[in-house]
Amino acid sequence: MTKLVALQVGDSLEEIRLRPVSRLDLIKYAGASGDYNPIHTIDEEAKKAGLPGIIAHGMWTMGNLAKLFTPYVEQGFIQDYSVRFKGMVFLGDVITLHATLTEKTDNQLRFRVSATNQNGNEVIQGEVVFSLYEKISIP
């Protein structure tokens, strides 16, 4: 496992490309999160709300994005995680998750994070502050 502390400002974590968003993905998230707003699962309700079709829960995408950091759970934890929801995610969209290191202090790593769709548009964008269990030793 790569050590996060070895990253330099400007370096990125390995991107993750999700499989195309399916209705079942959203039904599962509705059940697991308790968010049953029907615009995320039922076509007619989405249309009534003026949408072309059902859209993913913003929190589904935000939840997915955090998994870029899960391989590093032994090195630290996500202390701050904030995002802005910039665009809607529709069925069949292919979402890619990104994180780039923007700042390094003695025990924190700050990343710019985003999820983009197949057209390269950011659907969410934000920041993660990853708190390290062991301080970075400055030589």
């Binding site: 202390q79 701050d80 904030s82 995002v83 929801f85």
Partner: peptide
Amino acid sequence: PAKGLIHGEQSFHYDRP
């Protein structure tokens, strides 16, 4: 209301997991 709300931004802050 149950419908029509738009989630604009979201953040979390943790002391520990």
